[in-house]
Amino acid sequence: MSKFFEEEHIKDEIKNKYEEARVRLNEYLDGSTGINVGKPVSRRNLLDTFIYGELAHSNMQKKKVYDEWMRDELLSIILKNEFRLTLINVVHIISYIGDLCEEVVIVSKGI
C-alpha cells in the first residue's frame, strides 16, 4: 500500500496523512496492552495470537499460547476484551486509510 501513496500524482498532503496513519497504526500495535503473562503482551502479539492461534489455526505455536491464555478464566475474559478493543481501533485506522484512497481516486478523476 505504501508504494501506492508514493506515486507522483498523489498530493503531498494525502501522502503525509497516509504516512501519519501508518506510523500511528504501527505504534499502536507495538504498544502494550497493559497485560503481563510472564512478559508484556503487545497489541500486535495479541492480534497475531488470536488470529493465527485461534481463528485461522495456522500457527501451532500461537495456538499453544492462545490455549494457555484461555485456561485462566479471568485472563481469558480480559484478553478477549482487549482483542475486541484492539480490532475496533485497527479497523478505525484502516477505514481512515480507505477514505484517503477514495480521496486519491476522486482527485485523479477530477470529480
Rank of each mutant, 00 (worst) to 15 (best):
Y52M: 13
E13Q: 07
H9C: 15
Y96V: 05
L25N: 01
L100T: 03
I111F: 08
Y96Q: 02
G98P: 03
R43N: 00
H57L: 14
F5Y: 09
S58P: 02
K64P: 08
R22T: 01
I97R: 00
I97M: 00
K63P: 06
P40F: 13
Y18M: 02
S32N: 02
M60I: 05
K63C: 04
Y66L: 11
L29V: 05
K64A: 12
L75W: 10
G98C: 06
D67E: 14
E73D: 10
E8I: 15
G38F: 12
W69C: 08
K109C: 14
E6C: 13
A56G: 07
G110D: 12
S42K: 11
N26R: 05
S32F: 01
S58T: 08
I93M: 00
F50T: 11
G31I: 08
E54H: 09
L25G: 00
G38W: 12
L85P: 02
I93D: 00
F50W: 14
N81L: 15
R24N: 01
L100R: 01
L55N: 14
D12H: 03
K62C: 03
E73F: 06
I97T: 01
R24Q: 00
N36T: 10
L74A: 06
T86Q: 00
I10Q: 02
K109N: 13
L46V: 07
L29H: 02
E8W: 13
V107N: 15
P40E: 14
R84C: 11
